[in-house]
Computed example of a mutant assay.
Amino acid sequence: MDSKLKTETSNVTAMMEFVLLGFSDIPNFQWLLFGIFFIIYLAILVCNSLIILVTSFDPVLQTPMYFFLSNFSFLEICYVTVTIPRMLMDLLTQKGNISLLACATQMCFVLMLGGSECLLLTVMAYDRYVAICNPLHYSLVMNPKVCVQLVTASWISGVPVVIGQTCQIFSLPFCGSKTINHFFCDIPPILKLACGDTYENEIAVYVVAVVFITVPFLLIVISYARIISSILKLSSARGRAKTFSTCSSHLTVVVLFYGTASITYLQPKPNQSEWVGKLISLFYTVLIPTLNPIIYTLRNKDIMAALRKLLTKLLSGSKT
């Protein structure tokens, strides 16, 4: 019996390193992918930085809605920085070696920032609800102190939960293959490498996903149900269109982000193929953060006006 246990124990590798396969199965496109993702990363950094800049310094944009948008843009910069630079390095070197600690750290930050994004999108929906459904008390309800408290809660609420879940997953024994068929350390591909029964871990992932994805999404749905009800009561068609336009950008981002994130995490045991999993992950870690600043700026006259003023000042300053 003892010899059998020793044999089983020796077969379990105490892995200190993983290998991220990324897009190594399409080697002829490595440099093309590097160029595409590098341009996308720069675009995300520049566009979100511009939003932060104009919402911080333009007097017209000193409102709770743009305060939340500024925080959301900063969160997006942090979110993509956790995954894209690492992916670019792997494409450049064509090596995906990542230590167990680095892998756990990356997973922790991806989950932490993703959870913060879910909560912040909920806060932004609540802001629109108060502005449209209770406009007379808006400045009282959404005062600067409350806005800071809501943003702070969005950033830190999930930290202990995510750290606990990451520790739980990486305390599992890993044996056999050490290759992660993904471009970053995500929960589903890591659990596939674990030895033994991972049922409890999968249930824990599902519960956390319900708390940080389903519950916030339901709150957003309730907020928008009341918002739409209030908009429909407006007598002027122009007034209805103008009021709804202030929410349409946020609603578009919510549908895109929650749609892809729920497919990945709201399953105790994901059934999609590894390529489909990678494609879905690309949507919520790369494509949606790229679209978000475009959605918010092109459909927002105040931000476009602030950007024009900023560009005019920069151009006039450079001429002098």
Rank of each mutant, 00 (worst) to 15 (best):
K95A: 10
T122I: 02
Y129Q: 04
M15E: 07
S281G: 05
P85R: 07
F37Y: 15
T290V: 01
A305S: 14
L5I: 01
Y138D: 04
L33E: 02
L307W: 08
T246W: 10
Y79H: 06
S316R: 14
C47G: 09
C103D: 00
I303Y: 06
S73D: 01
K192S: 13
L91Q: 02
C195W: 06
G196F: 06
T122Q: 11
P160T: 04
E17L: 03
L33D: 02
S154I: 01
F244T: 07
L172K: 10
M89L: 13
N292A: 10
S318A: 14
T83S: 15
I39T: 13
G317C: 11
L121K: 07
I295H: 06
I180K: 08
V221M: 06
V205A: 14
T320H: 14
Q106R: 06
T152Y: 10
N201P: 00
L218D: 04
S73H: 11
V60R: 15
V276L: 14
V141M: 03
K145M: 09
I132R: 10
N300R: 02
L140H: 15
V60W: 08
F244A: 08
I227T: 04
R226S: 13
G239P: 00
S177E: 09
M15T: 05
T297I: 10
N201Y: 06
L92F: 15
S262P: 05
I36M: 05
L298Y: 12
D197G: 03
M142G: 03
S3V: 04
Q272S: 06
V12W: 03
Y296E: 08
V80I: 11
I40T: 07
G114I: 07
V54R: 12
A125K: 08
L113M: 05
G277K: 08
L266P: 00
I263N: 06
M87T: 05
V255G: 01
A43Y: 12
L291D: 02
I280F: 05
T55K: 05
F23E: 12
L120D: 01
D90Y: 13
M124Q: 12
L21K: 15
H182L: 03
L287A: 09
V54A: 08
M304R: 15
K309C: 09
P160H: 03
I39D: 05
Y79P: 00
I84R: 08
I77G: 02
I132K: 11
N181P: 00
S3Q: 08
L218H: 04
I294Q: 09
W275T: 08
L33P: 00
T122N: 11
V12T: 11
I231Y: 02
T214E: 03
Q168Y: 15
F283N: 12
A237Y: 13
H137P: 00
L279Q: 12
N48C: 04
V159P: 00
M124N: 03
Q94F: 10
T214R: 06
N97A: 14
S262M: 14
F67S: 12
G35R: 00
V82A: 11
I169V: 11
Y258V: 02
K4S: 10
M124Y: 01
I52Y: 13
P64T: 02
S10E: 04
H250G: 02
K95C: 09
T214Q: 04
A305Q: 13
I213H: 15
G158F: 13
C147V: 09
L33F: 07
A209L: 03
M112E: 09
I203H: 08
E76M: 12
E200G: 08
Q62C: 02
L61V: 01
P188E: 07
R86G: 14
Q62Y: 06
V208Q: 04
C103K: 03
C78L: 15
S230E: 14
T252D: 05
